[in-house]
Nucleic acid binder design. Structure first.
Lengths: 343, 343
DNA sequence: CCTAGGCTCTGGATCGATCCAAGGATCGAT
DNA sequence: ATCGATCCTTGGATCGATCCAGAGCCTAGG
């Protein structure tokens, strides 16, 4: 059976529109890009022709001439399973929405596990994207330093990770310490005094940042922190192990965790002991993941304003790619606490 | 303070390579696209020049000439919160990985809520992408029918949704009925006989599909289904309400759910009643979401082979975009059951 | 009446890669 | 030595949009 497979019929070009409207190509181009250069009646005629033919500029041709693709590269790290972090998903959605309004599309890519820079390099050299958004900067992301050395435009979601305070690229960050402080303050309000911290290992800048929010708030209220902190890997098993140790040695009545994953570790141990979160022991997480939203009785969690972050990122991108280019200031956003049954 | 903002220095062009290697542009082009047309020593010389300059073909120029962008459009629906479905995330990851190997990149876009076709139309008319991947076909997605009418190449993740058995586009689907059957069979093995079903409303084709897996398996084992089925919205609250009704009226000892979200509804009610999932009442979900993986004591769930699905989708795409184009057959993949504490 | 200057509009060149048709080199056979 | 065939290489045209320089028209001012 010989069946014709769908192929696009050739779309109309600028020249087609020009002919129909009885003007030159350049005039049509102006109608699209600089409408105020045209006389009113000409503009109307051209727009009618555009409408009639359903004309849209060919992206490849435009991109070739203007040397800009209106695509933004976003590298996505391998999906992690067995934890509760689905931050990226929400951020990507927000980003796609926001950048569409600014006339940009998001191009996804991955790289080798070995060479974190490979994917960036390819896209850069083939001039496939105008800029990048770099997300996991807190881990000392080598891609960012590399991009900077290549003078490639990019915006970091996360503050500059190195000592260089004189940052040469825009960044957007969410105030993690404030988030942890909120969670801690909330538990104190509820009458807790022995509040434990379960966070990441000391080499995580972001982890230490979040921890400082807990430490600060405890201190402000004259509460002791000694023996109440634990720093582990970001897995459920580690969170659970930390819970066991803390419960047995320091008998806290509440846990503030650096991630929803760790908080789930706490919930696992409570479940095993037949304790009820929110009634017997309070727990808070970080990220407001779907897990936090759905686990019974609901996990109180620090929600990051990813939608606002996306807006700020895109705004910074527009600055970078604008003419003249403009280097936007760093932006610090405030998270908020979503209170649920676990506290 | 006047600081130079990063701009890319102009990348080398084909002509640059040609000059360095002492050959013509076309020869360099052949070295890249049809290496076997060159004599061995010429090829080596050109490749050395390419290496030395770090040359990569300009995507815009290539795309303009060949009328193909090597980009695949993927529309992402607005992120849904408060449920447990994070299917898309895993699928997108798998897709990005797989399509990279095939030389494609994934372009994300969204559309208006009102006009589901708008985003497709723009990308199509501006020849921004070579093809689309359409994901939510089971809901009677109008985009698919529209794409077909425009003769635009696309692959559906999900079977053709309408009556037209003579499908004119490739599809990849996961055998939902088999998944539900697995879950049901697993519970029967564990000794359950009164196994309830909580699924989606009757107008969901996919929902009825999954339900049939439960019905069939129950029947095969001579078990009654009367009064044991419930069809509701895909929310935690609905799932919980259905659980209440079923527990009170039909006293099942196990629940098979059409989604992890509904299963979480069951867990919520069990939690409220002080019942322990897996010990007092067994529960299974669908999709193996992060929620299923992390909720204590773990939710048994049907895991879809999204990585395999991505591979099949990309293979079908390569067929569609190949020369000559080839219309791949529909592919049906089998899910597997991930057993956890809830059963 | 003439010209300067503003407003519109135009045609040719250009971006960088690939398609195409034809040119040159090489080789064996006659 | 000549010819044809094969293999490799080449310059010009092309994809569709935008940049650029300048042409035509009109009005205001001298």
């Amino acid at each position: 059976m010989n069946r014709v497979i769908g192929r696009l019929s050739a779309p109309p070009t600028l020249a087609d529109v020009a002919e129909l409207a009885g003007v030159s190509r350049q005039t049509v181009s102006n109608a699209v890009n600089n409408p105020d250069l045209l006389r009113e009646d000409t503009l109307a005629r051209v727009q009618a022709a555009i409408e009639q033919l359903g004309y849209q500029p060919n992206r490849a041709a435009r991109s070739l001439r203007t040397r800009s693709s209106r695509l933004i590269g976003l590298r996505i790290a391998p999906a992690q399973e067995g934890n509760a972090n689905a931050l990226m998903d929400r951020f990507v959605h927000a980003l796609v929405d926001t950048s569409r309004e600014a006339g940009y599309h998001i191009l996804l890519f991955t790289g080798d596990a070995e060479d974190p820079v490979a994917g960036y390099d390819d896209l850069l050299r083939s001039t496939a994207v105008d800029a990048f958004i770099v997300t996991d900067t807190f881990m000392g992301n080598p891609a960012a330093a590399w991009l900077r050395s290549r003078r490639a435009p990019f915006v970091a979601f996360g503050r500059p990770w190195d000592d260089e305070h004189d940052s040469v690229h825009p960044w957007v960050e969410i105030d993690s310490a404030a988030g942890a402080a909120m969670a801690t303050g909330h538990l104190i309000e509820r009458g807790h005094t022995r509040i434990a911290w379960i966070g990441w290992r000391k080499d995580s800048v972001l982890g230490e940042e979040r921890r400082s929010g807990w430490t600060r708030t405890m201190r402000e209220h004259g509460l002791a922190t000694t023996g109440l902190a634990s720093r582990v890997e970001d897995t459920i098993a580690s969170g659970r192990a930390a819970t066991v140790a803390l419960l047995d040695e320091a008998s806290p009545t509440a846990f503030v965790c650096a991630s929803d994953t760790l908080a789930m570790g706490v919930l696992h141990e409570l479940y095993a002991r037949g304790l009820r979160p929110g009634e017997d022991i309070a727990v808070t997480g970080f990220d407001d993941s779907q897990v936090a939203q759905t686990v019974p009785p609901g996990l109180t969690s620090v929600r990051q304003p990813l939608e606002d972050a996306a807006v700020a990122v895109v705004k910074a991108l527009e600055g970078l790619l604008g003419n003249p280019p403009y280097l936007a200031d760093g932006v610090m956003l405030q998270p908020r606490l979503v209170v649920r049954g676990s506290s």
